[in-house]
Amino acid sequence: MSEEPLLLFPNVHKVMRADRICKARGIATRVIPVPEDISSECGMCLIVEGSNLSSCMEALKEENITFELHKRGKQ
């Protein structure tokens, strides 16, 4: 089963900011509920689609957005 990168942020503000930054740079992302095996958050996290992870991480680093990188099985 292939895996896709999942980015976990401390709060919704950061999720939405990261999502906006990625979209502005043409990096495809989608928002999903935080999987329970990663965190007991009841909020949202970001899946980075395609092969965009390195450009996504670079963009977030430039904007000082901190996150945890996880992998999850592609569904």
């Binding site: 939405m16 999502d19 999903i32 909020g43």
Partner: peptide, 18 residues
């Protein structure tokens, strides 16, 4: 609501608040 789920309706509202 704001960020209490991840479906489109919540996404739209969360985005609006941000």
């Amino acid at each position: 609501t704001y960020g209490r789920a991840a479906y489109q309706r919540v996404y739209k509202t969360s985005s609006m608040i941000e």
